[in-house]
């Protein structure tokens, strides 16, 4: 079977540099493709297209579209098994975070994650905990949930601009 050729372009190099400039992702080029990350990844065991080693390789070659299209970078469970096991401390989990941030810049975010991010400033929690929920809590003998200071949370997300970037406001 013919293998598709990978060529690194200037644009690809630029993309790789952007990945490496993100917090925790600076050791990307230390990856020697041993695959330890993939052998114990709980998602890789069940999802053939999710291969942490391959994600690192594609990032090294600056393959932006192949990385950011579809739900690839959103499939990471964030379990840090690859982070713990990598003999080179490449930390593929942090490479995935970098890729999510770059996806976000392209206007790409998984709808589930977008919904979580936009719900937090609205309700203070990842779901509404209001009168109804507090009645249920009272039935279980629990005190009312803390009333989150949503104005303060709105002030935070306004200042960092995250809502605008996820397309939530």
């Amino acid at each position: 079977m013919a293998q598709s050729e990978i060529r690194i372009t200037n644009e690809g190099k630029e993309f790789r540099n952007e990945v490496m400039a993100t917090h925790g992702a600076d050791k990307l080029m230390h990856c020697y493709q041993c695959g330890t990350c993939t052998s114990d990844c709980p998602v890789a065991k069940r999802v053939p297209e999710f291969r942490p080693r391959n994600i690192a390789r594609l990032a090294i070659y600056g393959q932006k579209d192949r990385l950011l299209d579809g739900d690839l970078v959103w499939l990471c469970a964030g379990c840090y098994t690859c982070y713990e096991r990598c003999p080179q401390k490449v930390h593929v989990s942090e490479i995935v975070s970098a890729l999510r941030q770059l996806a976000l810049r392209e206007g790409k975010i998984h709808p589930t994650i977008k919904s979580i991010v936009t719900t937090i400033p609205k309700h203070g929690y990842i779901s509404e905990i209001g009168e109804f929920e507090n009645e249920m809590r009272a039935d279980d003998g629990l005190p009312p949930a803390p009333t989150p200071a949503t104005e303060e949370i709105k002030a935070i997300v306004k200042k960092t601009g995250i809502l605008g970037r996820v397309g939530g406001a």
Partner: peptide, 14 residues
């Protein structure tokens, strides 16, 4: 006044 911790997702986004 406490709220969501931020979620483990948020860290990966911003």
């Amino acid at each position: 006044g406490s709220s969501c911790c931020g979620t483990t997702y948020m860290e990966t986004l911003d």
